[in-house]
């Protein structure tokens, strides 16, 4: 199983990025392999409009099973993610990646 996080850094201790569309990084944790990969999304700051669906497309190609983020994606991004067939958990915007993962495992995050 692969879990994607919207983050401000690339390891367990990084802060989560509460924004979906304009998140700085997407961190993907492979639960079986216990392995991290990341995608640098910082160039999204150049997009005047439509950051949400563009980041959603990136996520679509990464094919995670779960997304953990802050506020949750807006309308357009949500439409893309529906196609990606993944579960979305929100409310982790204030946490570190590690804490967000723990909260998810313990069922403490709201489903988006």
């Amino acid at each position: 199983m692969k879990i994607a996080f919207t983050t401000k850094g690339i390891d367990w201790d990084s802060k989560m990025d509460p924004r979906f569309g304009r998140t700085e990084f997407i961190l993907v944790y492979d639960v079986e392999k216990e392995d991290f990969t990341h995608v640098d999304n910082r160039s999204i700051a150049d997009q005047a409009h439509g950051a949400g669906p563009k980041t959603a497309q990136l996520l679509f190609d990464l094919k995670p099973d779960v997304l953990i983020t802050g506020n949750g994606p807006g309308g357009n991004a949500a439409t893309v993610l529906e196609k990606a067939n993944l579960k979305i958990y929100i409310g982790a915007g204030d946490m570190t990646v590690k804490a967000a993962y723990e909260a998810y495992k313990n069922g403490n995050l709201k489903e988006g």
Binding site: D17, P18, R19, F20, G21, R22, A48, H49, G50, A51, G52, G70, N71, G74, G93, D94
Partner: peptide, 12 residues
């Protein structure tokens, strides 16, 4: 529109 979406993004 888009600017207000961006204003809200990340808010507590």
């Amino acid at each position: 529109g888009c600017p207000v979406v961006s204003s809200l993004s990340g808010a507590d």
